[in-house]
């Protein structure tokens, strides 16, 4: 009896354990096996606001695929110049290990003699994690994006310049630029080139579909430039081409009415089956009739 109870308990425990996923338990990790990746970057957005961003991720020293974002780490962002440090703001890392601080267009910055903004992102550290800090020097750049039709040719014109302390505009030279359009999930690159004499011109393709109204969002992007960092500019214009479908939709399953063959097949099958049921029931009543007659005869 004891053995039986033990056996049944064992089987029940085994089955229960199968119902529990292997990943449901909390996992402890040893920090010494991980290398901290602390990256600081900045993006100048289309409305001229600036985003300061820190990506804080722990990567396994043995397996590069094993990456764990550092969550809820407090990052202080500073604007520095020589010995001066101005705290711009503080942000905590998200579940993806990203901390961001958005600074408005009219934010004033300390600028060095070469026109650079110097930023610093500091993580003070905790009992389990060492402190981290990284600095960044960025020159401010201004981008103007013009979308116009020149001699019936849809043209994208990008102007890029810097402004010095005397408000003098200086065109930038040999800066890589990407022209993209916005999609549902990500941007699609149309052209990659570089700015010369502060300008870049690009003939827009005529076969790009837009949204339901034919609108397209065009982006000009400077990506990870050593002097200017990341800079985005966007404009929306009605340049989308609506492609009318030439071929008629042939899949009748999505149309209002089903194809005739489907009605025919279903009708044949159902009539065949139900006719057989009716035939069976009729025969059942014949059996009953015969039984009732026999009963009457026996009573007589």
């Amino acid at each position: 009896m004891k053995g039986k109870i033990f056996k049944l308990t064992y089987i029940a425990s085994f089955i229960t354990s199968l119902l529990i996923s292997i990943n449901c338990g909390a996992q402890e990790i040893d920090v010494s096996n991980y290398r901290m990746l602390y990256n600081f970057s900045t993006v100048k957005q289309h409305d001229n606001s600036r985003v300061l961003e820190v990506s804080f991720i722990a990567r396994n020293k043995k397996s590069k695929k094993d990456k764990i974002p550092v969550f809820d780490a407090e990052i202080d962002f500073f604007n520095i110049l020589n010995d001066k440090e101005v705290l711009l703001g503080t942000s905590k890392t998200s579940k993806e290990g990203i901390a961001q601080l958005t600074l408005p267009e009219n934010q004033s910055y300390l600028t060095d003699e070469e026109g650079y903004f110097n930023f610093k992102a500091v993580f003070e550290g905790t009992a389990g994690l060492d402190g981290e800090e990284e600095e960044l020097a960025i020159k401010d750049i201004f981008i103007e994006l013009y979308l116009s039709e020149i001699d019936s040719v849809k043209t994208v014109l990008v102007k890029a310049f810097t402004i010095d302390s005397l408000r003098v505009e200086t065109p930038v030279e040999e800066v890589d630029i990407i022209i993209s359009i916005g999609g549902m999930l990500s941007k699609m690159t149309l052209e990659e080139g570089y700015i010369e004499n502060g300008e870049y011109e690009f003939e827009f393709p005529t076969d790009i579909p837009g949204d339901v109204n034919g609108d397209l969002t065009v982006y000009s992007i400077i990506d990870d430039h050593k002097e200017f960092g990341n800079v985005n500019k966007k404009e929306t214009i009605n340049w989308g081409v609506f492609h009318k479908q030439d071929k008629k939709e042939n899949n009748k399953l999505w149309s209002d009415a089903a194809p005739i063959w489907m009605y025919v097949v279903l009708t044949f099958m159902l009539v065949g089956v139900w006719a057989n049921y009716i035939y069976t029931i009729i025969n059942l009543f014949k059996i009953k009739k015969e039984g009732v007659n026999l009963e009457l005869e026996s009573k007589v």
């Binding site: 009953k288 015969e290 039984g291 026999l294």
Partner: peptide
């Protein structure tokens, strides 16, 4: 259902 196990009933069933 009136089944009496006669030959004809059995065959029909």
């Amino acid at each position: 259902f009136g089944y009496q196990d006669t030959t004809s009933q059995r065959e029909r069933l």
